[in-house]
Design a protein around this nucleic acid. Sequence first.
RNA 1: GGCGAGGUAGCUCAGUUGGUUAGAGCACAGGAUUCAUAACCCUGAGGUCGGGGGUUCGAGCCCCCCUUUCGCUACCA
Length: 692
Amino acid sequence: MPKRYTVTSALPYANGPLHIGHIAGAYLPADIFVRYLRLRGEDVVYVCGSDEYGAAITMKAQKEKTTPRAIVDKYHTMMKSAFERFGIAFDIYHRTTEPIHTETSQGIFLKLYEKGEFDEQESEQYFDEVANQFLADRYIMGTCPKCGNENAYGDQCERCGSALSPTDLINPHSTLSGSKLVLRKTKHWYLPMNKYESWLKEWIVKEKQNTWKTNVYGQCKSWIEGGLQSRAMTRDLDWGVPVPLPNAEGKVLYVWLDAPIGYISATREWAKQNGKNWEDYWKNPDTELYHFVGKDNIVFHCIIFPIILKAHGEFILPTNVPANEFLNLEGDKLSTSRNWAVWLHEYLDEFPDKQDVLRYVLGSILPETKDSEFTWKDYQARNNNELVAILGNFVNRPNNLIPKFFAGVMPAQYELSDYDKNVLAELASYPDRIGDLIKNFKFRDALSEVMNVARLGNKYLADTEPWKIKDNPERIATILNISVQIIANLSILLKPFLPRTAEKLDKMLGFDGKLTWEDAKNTNWVKAGTLLQKIDLLFEKIEDDVIEKQIQKLTINNQQQTTNNQQSQTIAMANHSNEVKPLQTPINYDDFTKLDIRIATIVAAEKVAKANKLLKLTLETGIDTRIVVSGIAEHFSPEEVVGKQVTLLANLAPREIRGIQSQGMILMATDKDGKLRFLQPSEAVVNGAIVS
RNA sequence: GGCGAGGUAGCUCAGUUGGUUAGAGCACAGGAUUCAUAACCCUGAGGUCGGGGGUUCGAGCCCCCCUUUCGCUACCA
């Protein structure tokens, strides 16, 4: 038995509001887990906070003509309040821009530095000569080599979602000054992760096979066995934790190093405020550490951060990282940029006092083993058919019967029938069953078991029919007593999942809230004679028009955003050409005549084996028949390109691609949606016709 | 293409080390009932477990091939 627990939820990045995908991924499951542990009386600290450094935030600040500080203040406040209103029970919601975090992360960096865990390496990075600085990946824009999007960032293309590195970009330019970039040498500190491969094989591949979720374990194993790369732990940027070394001006800790350390600094701050020793929660082997994250975070929490903790030497390692998959919305991926999301703060505004409805719905569809889907119709159905019809209805039955039969006073339990005893025995079996499910991160199943308690109650009333009984007040009293005991235990079992609903039950039963999970095994502890308070309905039906409105809102927001995106993209493209054109090196006519551009006809095409973007094209050029390999397979099938005339850069030096000699390059136009189009003569011309 | 995780009733999902007629919730149909927000309770219908092959006395579970979804990764001059 561990003596204490440290639980973390992924630090949300402070550049936008929270949506239901975040909640379902990393916050609701952790919150259920933590509330359960607390009910068990465990020593647990649950920490989180805003992740406030990094290039994406300076980018956004620049775009909105404000400061990074203003951006993070805004979203930190927004997220903190949304979490509070929704009922995520952090012990502390911290932020990585606090001084204690700087101190903590610098301390860990220095310790690793002093232990010689880093490799200092010089590398070539893009430098903006106009702005006179190295650029973070996010500051570099260019054409995505995968989908042709001209506004791809140096770390990622937001259109096709590919992860990129700045050197992948075609025509990279600075978003600061718009200028073209030059490669310049810079020094960084790298963590040689390959050094830890054998340790990871032992620690994860061997030891975690049976305790970690298959999705998490499989992914980790794949990374470890595929070989780990050295990874830079610092960046050239001014918005971050400064590298605490001499001669390191302008260098900060990589956000992915500093963010998980945010868990530690948050714990330190909490300990300071609450008279605790933070080291108990991070350095004592009696403590179990759990990171709740989404699947996009697996590598950092399972590989990189543990390596850092291990390299440092004093810290405990995560017991488990129960990462969730993704939540989809109405058939599509959630997307901030397309505004395809249900925003938490908007939900809280528009559905006041319905936190628990959302908690219930998300809790029922948590993407625990595979991607799952939220739809408003499902939200409505679960509210109306489950919360209202089963849980709300059951509670409401004794809620009405007791005032009617006993003037609101808890009746006594008299002689129990065998059936009564069976029901009570079943009731007593739930806490352990539900607790086991929670401990195994099966929150969906656990929640459904809680609902089964309400089902048990409904069935008990239907079977015993107290309202029909005449001449046996003791029997009526016993039945209603047992019904209330079921509600009482339900109030405890609901606490981790639907805390506000559980509070309403406490109010009904007159509890002071100091109950533990174990109390839910006692099936006779609401004392006869207690004055029960009649409460309002726990849940109300949600009508079709409310749901229709939400669906419409989604569609409208999405369309508006798409239009906005297109506009800003058009503007960006215009700016881009304005900025880049003058800076391009002028060429003279002789330069142009060096290019031998011809019209040719595709006479055969086939997919290149082991590549899904490449087509091997056979061209009739008028001069010869040649092979060209072209990265267009995702846009055109081999069948549809055969017979087409295309424009060919014919005298480009041959190059071997995937073992095939490619002689030349097909010239393509990239449409703004990323689609490729051939450049064709307006009417067919002879093969070999010169383009000039 | 490689790797990881999925494809089980109309929908959302369970299925432990392979073992008798494959489960749950919701939706649907019939019945019963009225304390309860036309809710609850009972019963029922429904799936050649993505497709094909193999191992086995026996496979949703193991092996091979194919197909498809999601993620990571490679190929784009």
